[in-house]
Write a protein that binds this DNA or RNA. Structure first.
Length: 421
RNA sequence: GUGGGUGUAGCUCAGUUGGUUAGAGCGCAAGGUUGUGGCCCUUGAGGUCGGGGGUUCGACUCCCCUCACUCACCCCA
């Protein structure tokens, strides 16, 4: 019986790895230009960390985590998202202080046990950033403009930014109660899921796609109208800053994030090109989270970007960088015996050199060289050996010249670097 | 967890009302003069027709079960 990969995970093969590397490179560049530093944290944590940060009532905690017990009986989970771990690490290593601002980013796999579909995998990769230590609304705008810049650098089009504010611990509970009353009055007009949500997580009802629920909640009380003075001012400054940056956005009062820790600003970068999973990057402010996890009261904001989704949107031109390769074609045993040393010297000089030790015909080797898009082929047969040369063939213009064997490495390395410039 | 769609060669797919040796294109390999790639030609390798059971003289084809993939619900990046 053949063993295949686990359901919902996928192998990223060399054919598409260029895009991944390109995305990672662009992300590091953009994030670091904005003052973020990379942090690498474990892919598993105590289950309780996630339960406390993401929220007990959420699907992620209730049914989507890969949880197991280690040999001592501790409950451990593979991380379903990155924020909890980053905050935990920041607290643990005392990165947080009264006036410290931490800008951290991470790149890595997350795990959720969901039914796989387009743009949704059980192991999926996120690029995430967390900004801890300030609740200044201008940094909310900065996070958004940074994300915008990253998408732009990667040549991604057709993405819109949706924006909302969920209020703080002062005004959100008030709104929640008002909304709950409204939903209870709506009663049977709501789908079964939404009836359940009314008690558990009423805000999520606003996000339901069911047309009947949409209709029933058309007149629902507005989040934005119920914000307290401070939250209203905060949101206003975010918007004004975005306007000054000429960043287009749409207010979506139904934009409710799934994780409990979000406060105030929430946002999603969405597209219509991904089927049902339309969020490419999303996040928001979480001013209560650090304290909730046992750290000093510290506001924060962050986002996560789904790499598979982003890569699905990438133009085909991205990530196709070719190396200049030299293919060495030895003919006969004597030449093959010389090959390892020659290749080693070439590579020591930074030349991308390849061969096939199988002793195939020249024709066959030429085909192979052509297939790997070699720029040059070095032919080394008995004739060349006797003469002390390598026959260097330019695969583009078919020029061939004899190069003395002892000069070969030097000639080819300078030739390739010259071609390159 | 719930629905729909699809499983035939490495890839993309044909396969007629069930009928004997299951095909194509691409890819791969070897040739097409002596040591030279792309185009073209020839030949070749490669398939338990997802798996199991059933109906039948006979199943890739019909029925049941199962598994996988996929899309959607749900949820979310």
């Amino acid at each position: 019986m053949k063993i295949g990969a686990i359901r919902g995970v996928k192998d990223i093969l060399p054919a598409e790895i260029g895009k991944w590397q390109e995305v990672e490179f662009a992300a590091r560049e953009t994030l670091e230009n904005h003052g973020y530093r990379e942090i690498r944290i474990p892919v598993f944590e105590y289950t309780e960390l996630f339960a406390r940060s993401i929220g007990q009532g959420t699907d992620i905690i209730e049914k989507e985590m890969y949880t197991f017990e280690d040999s001592k009986g501790s409950k451990i989970s593979l991380r379903p998202e990155g924020t909890a771990g980053v905050v935990r690490a920041a607290i643990e290593h005392h990165l947080l202080g009264p006036s410290a601002i931490n800008k951290l980013y991470y790149i890595g796999p997350m795990f959720r046990h969901e039914r796989p579909q387009k743009g949704r995998y059980r192991q999926f990769y996120q690029i995430g950033a967390e900004l801890l230590g300030t609740d200044n609304p201008r940094v909310d705008a900065e996070v958004l403009s940074m994300l915008h810049l990253l998408l732009q650098h990667l040549g991604i089009a057709g993405i819109s930014l949706e924006l909302n504010s969920l209020g703080c611990k002062a005004c959100r509970p008030v709104y929640r109660a008002t909304l709950q009353d409204f939903l209870k009055a709506a009663g049977d007009a709501l789908c079964n899921d939404c009836k359940r949500r009314t008690d558990l997580n009423p805000l999520r009802v606003l996000d339901c796609k069911n047309p009947h629920c949409r209709e029933a909640t058309r007149e629902a009380p507005s989040v934005l109208a119920s914000l307290c003075r401070e939250c209203m001012d905060h949101f206003e400054t975010v918007k004004v800053t975005l306007d000054e940056l000429a960043l287009p956005y749409e207010i979506n009062e139904r934009l409710v994030r799934g994780l409990d820790y979000y406060t105030r600003t929430t946002f999603e970068f969405t597209t219509h090109q991904l089927g049902a999973q339309n969020a490419v990057a999303a996040g928001g402010r979480y001013d209560g989270l650090v304290e909730e996890l046992g750290g000093p009261a510290t506001p924060g904001i962050g986002f996560a970007l789904g790499m598979e989704r982003l890569i699905a949107l990438l133009p085909d031109t991205v990530g196709r960088r070719d190396r200049d390769v030299l293919y060495l074609a030895p003919l006969g045993k004597a030449a093959i015996d010389r090959t390892p040393h020659l290749l080693h010297e070439l590579r020591r000089r930074g030349v991308c050199a390849e061969t096939d030790y199988q002793g195939k015909s020249l024709k066959s080797q030429m085909k192979k060289a052509d297939k790997m898009r070699a720029r040059y082929v070095g032919i080394l047969g008995d004739d060349e050996l006797n003469e002390g040369v390598v026959l260097l063939r330019n695969m583009e213009n078919k020029d061939q010249q004899k190069v003395p064997l002892d000069k070969f490495v030097e000639v080819i390395s300078t030739t390739l670097s010259r071609d390159h410039s």
